[in-house]
Simulated assay, not measured.
Amino acid sequence: MTSSLASPSVTPCPCGSGALYAACCGRWHRGAEHLQAPDAEALMRSRYSAYVLGLADYLLDTWHPGTRPAALEPDPPGLRWLGLEVRRHEVTSEDRAVVEFVARSKLGGRAHRLHETSRFVREHGRWYYVDGDIRA
């Protein structure tokens, strides 16, 4: 994973929110303890941006300890993330939510889509990615 963001203060956020990176996912990526994603959708968007930017430590830190892998494989050379579409954010209880999304990428001249419904849990006031179901 490698970062491809030119200037965070004037670059649109990779998550597709329309906001500048520094005011959007960048604030969660900076790691300030008091600044954490306020809901599951914000966390999911920040995780997508972390994939785009190659922020493996952030991805692992926001993955629930019960399902988190020991390490992440680097993206294959030439992989380009093209965009994110959030289809649904549903709060299922006070501390649980699901987010359905489609992330588009391109590798070796071929376009790919990842359509997933992800599960999130909030513990001690902090949201974590738990796991997800990938749709064909």
Score class of each variant (00 low, 15 high):
residue 2 T to A: 15
residue 5 L to G: 14
residue 5 L to H: 09
residue 5 L to M: 03
residue 6 A to N: 10
residue 10 V to A: 04
residue 11 T to R: 13
residue 12 P to T: 06
residue 14 P to G: 11
residue 15 C to G: 06
residue 15 C to L: 00
residue 16 G to A: 00
residue 20 L to R: 00
residue 20 L to E: 09
residue 22 A to Q: 11
residue 22 A to M: 06
residue 22 A to V: 14
residue 24 C to P: 04
residue 25 C to H: 03
residue 25 C to S: 03
residue 27 R to G: 07
residue 27 R to K: 12
residue 27 R to W: 02
residue 28 W to R: 07
residue 28 W to G: 12
residue 29 H to Q: 13
residue 29 H to P: 05
residue 31 G to Q: 07
residue 31 G to K: 08
residue 32 A to T: 12
residue 32 A to K: 14
residue 33 E to P: 13
residue 35 L to W: 07
residue 36 Q to N: 13
residue 36 Q to R: 15
residue 37 A to F: 09
residue 40 A to K: 07
residue 42 A to H: 08
residue 43 L to T: 07
residue 44 M to S: 00
residue 44 M to N: 08
residue 45 R to Y: 10
residue 46 S to Q: 01
residue 46 S to T: 04
residue 46 S to F: 04
residue 47 R to W: 10
residue 48 Y to P: 00
residue 48 Y to D: 05
residue 50 A to R: 05
residue 51 Y to D: 03
residue 55 L to C: 05
residue 56 A to G: 07
residue 56 A to N: 14
residue 57 D to I: 03
residue 57 D to M: 04
residue 59 L to A: 08
residue 60 L to E: 13
residue 61 D to I: 03
residue 62 T to G: 09
residue 62 T to S: 03
residue 64 H to Y: 02
residue 66 G to F: 10
residue 66 G to E: 15
residue 67 T to N: 00
residue 69 P to Q: 04
residue 70 A to K: 14
residue 70 A to C: 06
residue 71 A to C: 06
residue 71 A to F: 04
residue 72 L to E: 14
residue 73 E to V: 00
residue 73 E to R: 09
residue 74 P to Q: 06
residue 75 D to V: 12
residue 76 P to S: 04
residue 76 P to T: 03
residue 76 P to K: 03
residue 77 P to S: 13
residue 77 P to D: 05
residue 79 L to A: 12
residue 81 W to V: 01
residue 82 L to N: 11
residue 82 L to S: 03
residue 84 L to C: 09
residue 85 E to Q: 12
residue 85 E to K: 15
residue 85 E to A: 14
residue 85 E to P: 08
residue 85 E to Y: 11
residue 86 V to T: 06
residue 88 R to M: 02
residue 90 E to P: 11
residue 91 V to G: 02
residue 91 V to L: 14
residue 91 V to T: 15
residue 92 T to D: 03
residue 93 S to E: 13
residue 93 S to D: 14
residue 95 D to P: 03
residue 95 D to W: 09
residue 98 V to M: 12
residue 98 V to Q: 14
residue 99 V to K: 03
residue 101 F to T: 00
residue 103 A to W: 07
residue 104 R to N: 13
residue 105 S to L: 15
residue 105 S to A: 15
residue 109 G to F: 10
residue 109 G to R: 06
residue 110 R to V: 03
residue 112 H to P: 02
residue 112 H to K: 12
residue 113 R to C: 14
residue 115 H to L: 06
residue 115 H to W: 04
residue 116 E to D: 08
residue 116 E to W: 09
residue 117 T to M: 03
residue 119 R to W: 01
residue 119 R to P: 05
residue 120 F to D: 09
residue 120 F to N: 01
residue 122 R to Y: 08
residue 124 H to F: 10
residue 124 H to Y: 06
residue 127 W to F: 10
residue 128 Y to R: 01
residue 130 V to A: 11
residue 131 D to N: 12
residue 132 G to S: 02
residue 132 G to N: 11
